[in-house]
Design a protein around this nucleic acid. Structure first.
Lengths: 202, 202
DNA sequence: GACAGCCTGGCAGTGACTGCCAAACGTGAT
DNA sequence: ATCACGTTTGGCAGTCACTGCCAGGCTGTC
């Protein structure tokens, strides 16, 4: 726990760090391959560990849960979301701020293909969906204070309205990404998002 | 599989049916008690089975999963939702129809206290929340055709807008029930729902 | 080169959940 | 009352995700 890690320019990376990263990538790659090949539920941790060349115990040390093997940096999503929304000008409305956050998160994907593959897996696997929705709820809760300050906070007793607004934004993202996947990645998710939000807000 | 069960007036209920129902209720009662006493995650299936006087195997035959032990008839929720919305007059808008559905589901709870207890458990237990959200997503998907016909369906390629509208309604229900729980059951959920929807739709 | 520290693998255990099988029990006909 | 039949039940073993614990190996430091 000595915090030696140099952030950007990885000059003084120790061998450990490099090995760690290598193993991590290998595990992630193997997992994603097996998931898409045979499905999430049909792939066991034992199999991933075996094919990645590590022990189950080690795999669990890198990724605490099976879900974490998909969407490597889900925690990063939350961070980017918070940061982006926080950086929006104070006079930008809630909807504009939320839109910016959503766009920023979507921009995080490495490639269109990877994003499509992830979303497809996500929307077609019940167990994954559940986990994802849960994690997302936590993001929403973190966002609450940020959004509340952008609304007429005083009259609101317990943040019900702010919660509803945030949840609606995510609901539109959901609808948009689902439709995007159903159309095999045709068009832009953000366009769909805008359409959805327009349909909701009349 | 002889379909002998008489629907309403249970006159010709066999001993089997009665025993079944009794056991089912006993299990459900025990589970709810233990969940509220010591928490969902801290309660094991073994304990519930022991205290309810049945084997684990039997418990799993009655309720397929641990989650099913809470919210005994979650499937019924979906049914009532569909039925109610289907019965709304054709010229009622989507929002009115959805509101009626939400209200009908909320009216299904035995008592205010029970509803509060359930919601509290739900909102405070990550694993439960996940399962609930997942099940709800399936309801939403079932609702799609019903809502789509009430919107200008033709222009919509893949039901993105309908999905967004439905998800938004549930998002408001979420925000409302969360706030309701936070306020220890003060006020009416439907009032909060209306407030939330108003905040979203401007 | 030696000591300290992290990383790894293996092992045993927990908890939800499932398939299988034999025993117990309700049910309808004789 | 009894018998055959179908249902229900409990126990057992097994799978899978996941967690502590411990010994052994490799790395970094002095």
């Amino acid at each position: 726990m000595k915090q030696e890690a140099k952030s950007a320019t990885g000059a003084p990376t120790t061998l450990w760090d490099r090995t760690r990263q290598l193993a991590s990538q290998e595990i992630l790659k193997t997992a994603l391959r097996l998931f898409t090949e045979q499905g999430y539920d049909e792939t066991t941790i034992a199999q991933i560990a075996r094919e990645a060349g590590v022990s189950q115990r080690t795999l669990f040390r890198y990724f605490g849960t099976k879900e974490d093997l998909l969407g490597g940096g889900q925690d990063r999503f939350g961070q980017v979301l918070m940061d982006t929304i926080g950086e929006q000008p104070a006079d930008a409305g809630v909807w504009r701020a939320l839109r910016a956050g959503v766009a920023a998160v979507l921009a995080l994907h490495d490639s269109r293909e990877q994003a499509l593959e992830r979303f497809r897996l996500l929307h077609n696997t019940a167990s994954l969906r559940a986990g994802w929705l849960e994690k997302r709820l936590r993001f929403q809760e973190n966002l609450l204070p940020l959004i509340e300050t952008r609304m007429d906070a005083a009259t609101d007793k317990e943040g019900a309205k702010a919660r509803a607004v945030i949840a609606t934004a995510f609901a539109c993202l959901d609808a948009a990404s689902m439709t995007w996947v159903a159309n095999d990645g045709k068009g832009e998710i953000m366009d769909l998002y805008d359409e959805c939000l327009a349909a909701v807000r009349g």
